[in-house]
Design a protein around this nucleic acid. Sequence first.
DNA 1: TGCGCGATATACT
DNA 2: GTATATCGCGCAA
Length: 200
Amino acid sequence: MKLPESYYQDNDVIKLSRDLIGKYLFTRFDGLVTGGYIVETEAYNGIIDRASHAYNDRRTNRTEVMYHAGGIAYVYLCYGIHEMLNIVTSVEGQPHAVLIRAINPTEGIDIMQYRRDMAVVKPNITSGPGSVAKAMGISRRINGISLQSDTLWIEDRGLVFNDEQIAAVPRVGVDYAGEDAALPYRFYVKGNPYVSKPNR
DNA sequence: TGCGCGATATACT
DNA sequence: GTATATCGCGCAA
């Protein structure tokens, strides 16, 4: 059921970002399972990508996990408030990562609702990277964890979206990245209500 | 050791 | 639409 280690070690992070759309992402904490299928991702293409933390081979304590072989999680804090979940891909020494920006929840929605402090469930419960992490209980203490673990994993349940249903557009919030800001590295399911704001 | 700033979300007007 | 919370990283000094 779980996607195997080899799935993540593909060298083409753009292709993987596209392929992860429709895959099921799960977490389990204290026996509570939450998850759903991925509807929005962004690719961060290693040391040549100005929007990536690893741009120009910036290997530091923070970025170290991105240099590991694919198949683990990279979780970091942004704006002092939001945690973001990334999937590390490619081979060792190649700091590629896929940012999970939105999922369509299917399991443990009540638990996610509680974690998000929401009185009523609305689509923004898992819309946007910070929301996904909070709803699924993901934080930096999970940084570097294997996707073969029983805490965080991804499954292929046969859900497929064709190219007509998926949009490829520039990434969000990376204006500082110069020319690389225009690259179509953001993928999402057209019309899905859980996709985060900027267009749909 | 200090400082500027960001892969955002939310509560405002 | 725009204001603002809030912190640790990366680089300069």
